[in-house]
Structure formats: structure tokens, C-alpha cells
């Protein structure tokens, strides 16, 4: 199998994730796009592991670690989203501007 096939698939999935993060408004869909990006990284790790065959299964081990990190990340992310929903009544990432720097610029930005 050519190595370029999994690598290009990973690039495509990563760019779809980037598009989702930038274009989506709902915070939960942004988190879903993060998952797509992390999957692209895992695909790279596994593909390079199958290419190099170093005998230590380094890529597969790191892929399992990344999956664990993704589980921790989505747990915390969804907790933050629920907190946002409890405080604001919506999960719109564009209007969640509590941490913005200058409140007086809000009219210009909107």
C-alpha cells in the first residue's frame, strides 16, 4: 500500500476538522470537529508505525495515548459547554464573549 494514501486521508480529515472549528457556531459541533482532527493525527501515527515497523509499536502506543487524551478533553469540554448553557441559556460560541478584552467594542464587532 502506498504510504501517501493514509497520509492524504489524514490531511483531508484534518482540514475538514479545521473547517468545522472555524465555521460552526454551536460549541458541541466545534468539539465534534476537534475529534475529527484528533482522528487525523491518530491515522498519521498508525500509518507511520506500519511504515517504519520499529518493533516497539511506538505509533500505535501513541495513538492509544491520544485517544485517552481525547476522552479527557471531550469530558472537560462538554462540562464547560454545559456550564455555558446553564449561565447563558445557549451554547453559541460566537456570542460567548464574557472573556473579551474591551467591552466597549462590542457594538463595533457586532
Amino acid at each position: 500500500m502506498p504510504l501517501i494514501l493514509p497520509l492524504l486521508l489524514a490531511v483531508l480529515l484534518f482540514c475538514l476538522g479545521v473547517y468545522g472549528v472555524l465555521a460552526r457556531r454551536n460549541a458541541i459541533t466545534i468539539l465534534m470537529s476537534f475529534e475529527l482532527m484528533l482522528n487525523a493525527v491518530n491515522l498519521n501515527l498508525v500509518a507511520f508505525d506500519a511504515w517504519r515497523l520499529d518493533g516497539l509499536a511506538t505509533g500505535q502506543t501513541l495513538a492509544v495515548f491520544v485517544i485517552t487524551l481525547a476522552a479527557a478533553e471531550i469530558g472537560l469540554g462538554l462540562a464547560i459547554v454545559l456550564l455555558l448553557f446553564r449561565g447563558h441559556g445557549h451554547v453559541d460560541a460566537d456570542t460567548a464573549r464574557d472573556l473579551r478584552e474591551q467591552p466597549e467594542l462590542q457594538e463595533n464587532e457586532l
Binding site: N42, V46, A63
Partner: peptide, 11 residues
């Protein structure tokens, strides 16, 4: 399924 095709069944 891609992982399985790359012989990373555990992953």
C-alpha cells in the same frame, strides 16, 4: 476500519 487495514487491530 482504516486502523484495521493498517494492521493496528488493537487501536
Amino acid at each position: 476500519g482504516c486502523f484495521g487495514a493498517l494492521h493496528a487491530e488493537f487501536v
